[in-house]
């Protein structure tokens, strides 16, 4: 099998050696550079989503008829997309479909 590959054993070994020194110099990419296993508290916890509590109230999210009647969508995105400017302006890379 190795005979069929075009990368030679020496090239692969060289890549491994280079990788080893890359890792040693902490050069691997990525914004999340945590050290695995550093956290004795068993990692960052996400909330479990199944519970038996009731949402408080009767009239908020659940009961409004707005958005359900197939009428005009009235909401405009007002978040961090305003800050993340694309080469073509705020929030958009391509011309907006009309």
């Amino acid at each position: 099998m190795s005979a069929n590959t075009s990368l030679t054993a020496a090239a692969l070994a060289g890549a491994f050696a280079a990788a080893l020194s890359l890792i040693a110099s902490q050069a691997s990419a990525g914004p999340a550079a945590e050290q695995p296993g550093k956290d004795k508290c068993y990692g960052v916890s996400l909330k479990g989503h199944n519970d038996c509590a009731a949402g408080a109230g009767t009239s908020c999210a659940g009961t409004s008829k707005v958005d359900y009647d197939g009428g005009a969508w009235k909401y405009v995105a007002k978040g961090a997309c305003d800050t993340i400017k694309t080469p073509h302006g705020t929030g958009s890379l391509m011309p907006t479909k009309s």
Binding site: G43, G48, N50
Partner: peptide, 12 residues
């Protein structure tokens, strides 16, 4: 614990 929150395969 709520059983359904522990029905993943592994992790935290």
């Amino acid at each position: 614990v709520h059983a359904e929150n522990y029905m993943g395969a592994g992790g935290v």
